[in-house]
Design a protein around this nucleic acid. Structure first.
Lengths: 230, 230
DNA sequence: TAGTGGTCTAGACCACTCA
DNA sequence: GAGTGGTCTAGACCACTAT
C-alpha cells in the first residue's frame, strides 16, 4: 500500500478543485494517470473519485472523462428522527399526551392522500409532544387501518403513534414536505401560543410496498428551526 | 464475474432486512459467508454492505459484525439550487430586482454571525426574486467585503447576488436553518402578502476556508413548500 | 488474543460514448 | 472503433474491538 488512502486522496482531490487548480468545466486527468501520479492503484483512485462524484462536485463519463461541475448542487441532509429522541437529544425530558383517537371515515382530502378505496376507514389520532413540560409539537395523524389493523389496539398512551409505527413498519418510504402556516385557534391553544403565530410544519405521507400507511402533519412550537450543515 | 453486481446485491440484502428475514438487532452473516452464499467475491459484498450502512440501515463493527439497526434514522436529502434554477425548473420565467445595496457597518448580530473584526464593513443587499412576474422570495444578505472585495463592483442588476457568489466562491461550506416567521410589514409588502402571514425562511451562513463569506435570509412567498422523498 | 470489517493491489473484462 | 470509467476478482495485510 502506498501512503495514500481513499480518504486522503478524496481530501487532496477536493482541494485541487476548491483551490481552482482544476476549474469548473475542466476535464481532470484520467484514473490511470492519477494512479501513476499518486503511486497507488487505479481502484483506490476510482473509489475516491466516486465519492466526490456522489457529492456532486464532478461528473464522470465513460470515454468522456471526469469533469469539474460548474454549479455544484448543494445537497443538504437532514436526519428525521423519532420525536422522542429529537427532544431527548437536547437534554430535555420527553412526554406525550394522546389527545384523541377515533376510527372514522376519512375526508376526501385524506382519502386522496392515502389513496384509499371508498369505505376504507382510518384511525385519526391527535398527539401533543412535550419537552420539559412545554409543548414541543402537535401531531395530527391518519392511519390506514387496512394496512395496519393492529393500530386499533396499540397502547398509544404509553408509546406515541409516531414511535409505534416506526417499530411496526420500520422500513417504509415516503414523501416529506416542510412549510410554514399560521396557527389556527385550536392549534395555537395546543401549543400555548397565539392564533396566527407562524409555525413550522412537517407534512409526511408514508408508504410500504406501494400501500399507504399513514399521513400526518406535525406543527412545531414557535421558534423551531431545522438545522443542517453543508 | 458471477451473476451478482454490487447493485443487485444491495437490493437483495435490503429486501432481506425489509421483509424481516433479518430483524432489528440481529447480526447478519459475515462478509466471507455472504460471499460464499452468493458466489461472489468478498470485495463486492463489502461494497454493497457499505452502501446500505451509509443509508443507516445497518451498523458495522470490526469483530462485532454487522447488525440491523432498530430505528433507522431517516435521512432526507434536499437539493439547494440557485434560486433562478429553482424557479426555471417549474417552467416559470425568472427575474430578479436589486432593491438596495449599501456598504455599511454591520449590526452586532451580523458582526457576530460573520465573526467580523470591529470596523470590518459589509455589503448589505436586498433582492426580490420573481417567478412569472410574481414575488417568489425576498432575500436579505450581508457580504463580508474583506473576503470578497469584488462584490462592490459586481453587476447585481444583471446577476443576482446569490448566483454571483456561487460563481465567485463555488465550493463554500455553511450552516443552513429552516424556520417559520410572521411577515413584517416591510417583507409582506415586498412579497405582496399581508403582515403576519406565515413565511418559510431559509437562513444561511457561508464559509470558505474558515473565513466567513456571507449570511442571508431568504423569505419565500406564501405557500412555498420544501419537498423531498425518503 | 482472535475474529471481523476496512482497505489496498494488480489484473481483467465490460459498457458506454465520443469522434 | 477506440478510449474512458464501471466493476469484479483473489489475495493480502491492517485496525479495531469483543471476549
Amino acid at each position: 500500500m502506498s501512503v495514500h488512502t481513499h480518504l486522503s486522496l478524496q481530501k487532496d482531490l477536493r482541494t485541487r478543485i476548491e483551490t481552482g487548480e482544476w476549474r469548473a468545466g475542466d476535464v481532470i486527468p484520467k484514473e490511470v494517470e492519477l494512479a501513476e501520479d499518486y503511486g497507488c492503484s487505479r481502484t483506490t483512485i476510482n473509489r475516491a473519485l466516486r465519492a466526490i462524484a456522489d457529492e456532486g462536485l464532478i461528473e464522470r463519463r465513460r470515454k468522456g472523462g471526469t469533469r469539474v461541475l460548474a454549479a455544484p448542487v448543494r445537497q443538504a441532509k437532514f436526519a428525521i428522527p423519532i420525536i422522542r429522541k429529537q427532544v431527548e437529544a437536547t437534554g430535555a425530558v420527553y412526554r406525550h399526551h394522546l389527545l384523541s383517537k377515533h376510527i372514522e371515515t376519512p375526508s376526501p382530502a385524506i382519502e386522496a392522500r392515502l389513496r384509499l378505496k371508498q369505505g376504507d376507514e382510518v384511525a385519526h389520532i391527535e398527539t401533543l409532544h412535550m419537552s420539559d413540560g412545554r409543548p414541543f409539537a402537535f401531531e395530527e395523524r391518519w392511519i390506514n387501518i387496512a394496512a395496519v389493523p393492529e393500530i386499533t389496539n396499540a397502547p398509544l398512551e404509553d408509546i406515541s403513534a409516531n414511535e409505534w409505527l416506526v417499530n411496526a413498519v420500520p422500513y417504509a418510504s415516503g414523501d416529506v414536505n416542510f412549510s410554514a402556516v399560521n396557527a389556527s385557534a385550536k392549534i395555537a391553544a395546543r401549543l400555548e401560543t397565539q392564533e396566527g403565530q407562524a409555525l413550522f410544519v412537517l407534512d409526511r405521507t408514508t408508504w410500504f410496498d406501494s400501500q399507504s400507511i399513514t399521513t400526518m402533519k406535525l406543527y412545531f412550537a414557535q421558534g423551531y428551526k431545522l438545522h443542517t450543515q453543508l
